[in-house]
């Protein structure tokens, strides 16, 4: 556990709070990069996902490509792009946007798909136009799954942004690679802790958001909740006497 004490010491060392390698600066880089990537990816993926979800067209293509993207190794994509367009920040931006699009896309269209068809049918039957159906019915009801997609994209980006330090002088990943190179455990461990904390903070933030954006009416009577609770209290058949006693006790 000695290493952890050293890492903590490294984390509070004033020397690590000045200059180009300062912790706040690296944190801001990492976070800023994550946010920008998510915004770009969302701008591409959300409209497209809504279109797929609303029309049902292009769904099979989206599903297949999402599966294929999961198989593509992030490190490979990162190094390939970096080698093709040169070392610098552009490569991580491109690579990570590409990686962040599929989960957001999937969140957008599965959110629409998860809505009861009858609800949408009814909305159309009472006279909502297609745009109104999207804005007033599909978007609010599909929002929880969309946030879920953003959540996994964010985690993906934070993690891969750490790897991006392999091809660019940037973000918290720098500490990890510098520490690995010089066998400086305090630095790489301290950096790792920072990355993990950032990831967990984002995860918590998204978990909260996801809870908030579930429309209240949907939450109010969700039958799945009841079902989880009612999962059999007694799975085993016992003798009638024992069963009877249990009933007495439960009263």
């Amino acid at each position: 556990m000695n290493f952890f004490a050293e890492a903590l010491q490294w984390l509070v060392d004033p020397a690590n709070y000045v200059g180009l390698n300062a912790i706040p600066l690296r944190l801001a880089q990492h976070l800023g990069f994550t946010v920008v990537t998510l915004v770009i990816a969302s701008a591409i993926a959300i409209p497209l996902g809504f279109l797929i979800g609303h029309t049902g067209r292009g769904r099979s293509v989206a599903v297949a490509s999402a599966g294929a993207f999961r198989a593509i190794p992030t490190l490979g994509l990162l190094t390939l792009v970096a080698l093709s367009i040169g070392i610098g920040l552009n490569a991580p931006y491109i690579a990570l946007t590409v990686l962040a699009v599929p989960p957001i896309l999937a969140g957008a269209y599965t959110g629409f798909e998860a809505i009861d068809r009858r609800t949408i049918d009814a909305a159309r039957a009472v006279g909502m136009s297609e745009v109104q159906i999207v804005r007033q019915v599909e978007v609010p009801l599909g929002l929880p799954l969309l946030i879920g997609g953003l959540r996994s994209a964010a985690l993906q980006v934070v993690a891969t942004a750490t790897l991006a330090a392999y091809v660019a002088d940037f973000g918290l990943g720098r500490y990890l690679f510098a520490g690995l190179k010089t066998r400086d455990y305090a630095e790489m461990l301290g950096g790792s802790i920072l990355v993990i904390l950032m990831a967990l903070a984002l995860e918590g933030l998204f978990a909260l958001t996801q809870r908030f954006v579930v429309p209240r009416g949907v939450l109010a009577g969700r039958p799945t909740d009841i079902r989880t609770r009612s999962s059999r209290p007694r799975p085993v058949m016992e003798s009638a006497i024992e069963e009877g006693q249990k009933n007495v006790h439960s009263k």
Binding site: R118, T119, A123, A125, Q136, P140, L141, P215
Partner: peptide
């Protein structure tokens, strides 16, 4: 459609 009332099975109400 906006000028015609429509009532469906399972009410078709907007859950949110």
């Amino acid at each position: 459609r906006r000028s015609i009332g429509y009532v469906m099975q399972n009410s078709g109400l907007l859950p949110h």
